[in-house]
Design a binder for these strands. Structure first.
Lengths: 231, 231
DNA sequence: TAGTGTGAATTTCTTCACAGCG
DNA sequence: CGCTGTGAAGAAATTCACACTA
């Protein structure tokens, strides 16, 4: 019995991938989906899909598959995505600016509700419909707009200060794009995206596969490198 | 004996984190570092650092630690980072534009050498020093500039076509920001960054910790949610 | 009959703990 | 002595394989 709770971390990271597939199926008016087909869509194998979904409960029908709408609902509920969660972007340089304009957050339930920056030259400026506010106003901004999530797009040097400010303002979920190590209290969840780091990992696998840069080693065997799910 | 090759995937993903710490140590003129201190900087534990580094070889000195410069060199070599790898960004919308201006790639050995887009209205335009070229010119661009890596910043619908074009042009390392599942031949390595997906994962853990949205369940125990690394 | 749900086996990753070396 | 390097133990994640049932 999978029963309730304690969903493995690896499973949690895949649920949004399934969710996206389910939305595609919904758009295509597909009523029911098998673990096999869902696995293909999500880029994993069927056993993993079934195991993962079993942590949510027994929502499938033997001999048939999963009801797309019902599974979609249950999964959204489990992920806390039955409502929108407003986001504040801290740091309106290149990256912050792009993230603010990037429709991908709002489309998926995370409307960008506010932009803040420490640079007085930027404060008061507009990006789309939003006016950039000063970082010192963060507590007010968070409270007024019901901000649930913070996105850090500042230089590395500012990251820890920004984290502290977000935490002080009551934000408990933070996504950090600054290539810096930061610490948070245990009540706060922080995830990190380091763009250059991803390229460095690609560089490693490139290296391994013995490119024009001849690396005439024992080539052992070819890696099954393809990041599952990418992750 | 760790001897050579077959570095675990999980270790590979951490090497760039250590590398960044080593650069900080180099800047601070630190000659030698223990696994304990390096672990603290990287946000992992010391046993993991030693195990991970042992896959590269026996580069430490018992009773002393690791020579920062030497380890830095060995690790750079292993990651294939002893030279720069030019990058082409495909898709010069909001995200692509930001990534092009974002200094973080060039700083870490991945100069943005070219920008391409399918939209004739954009082709010929400038972003910084670069002129946007048409995606049909990709083979020439890749060959002329020695492009090693492709970054996809197009809408999801175009992603597979772009991947195919990159592969056809000879690019064998691809970083995909488009929220779409794409397939590549086994000789090509593809990694994926999905920004909204990260927020969805944060939403899950937020949900778990029973926020104002009272979810008066059994709260079991508090998650040790903190993404290592960050943490 | 087709496909889920899940124990059990396997593989991968992490952590422990300590021998061994500078 | 202090700290690395690593077997071995332990935990987590994946995959197998099949009983079960709609």
């Amino acid at each position: 019995m999978a029963s309730r709770r304690r969903i493995p971390e690896a499973t949690v990271a895949r649920l949004p991938v399934y969710l996206r597939s389910l939305y595609e199926l919904l758009d295509a008016n597909t009523g029911t989906i098998s673990s096999e087909r869902l696995a293909t869509m999500a880029g994993v194998n069927a056993a993993k899909v079934r195991k993962d979904l079993s942590y949510l409960g027994s929502y499938g029908t033997r001999g048939v598959g999963y009801d797309v709408q019902y599974l979609l609902f249950q999964m959204s509920r489990e992920l806390g995505l039955t409502q929108d969660w407003p986001v504040v972007i801290v740091g309106v340089g290149n990256l912050g600016h792009a993230l603010a304009n990037y429709g991908g957050f709002g489309d998926r339930g995370f409307p960008v509700a506010a932009l803040v920056d420490a640079d007085p030259a930027l404060v008061g400026g507009r990006v789309g419909e939003l006016v950039i506010r000063h970082i010192d106003e963060l507590p007010g901004v968070v409270a007024e707009l019901g901000v649930a999530m913070g996105v850090i797009a500042t230089p590395a040097a500012a990251a820890q200060r920004v984290v502290d400010a977000l935490v002080a303002a009551g934000v408990r979920s933070i996504l950090n794009f600054a290539p810096a190590r930061v610490t948070v209290p245990p009540t706060v969840t922080l995830r990190k995206v380091d763009l250059a780091l991803e390229l460095q990992i690609l560089s490693f696998y490139r290296q391994q596969s013995g490119d024009e840069t001849d690396e005439t080693d024992e080539t052992d065997e070819i890696d099954e490198v393809d990041e599952e799910v990418s992750a």
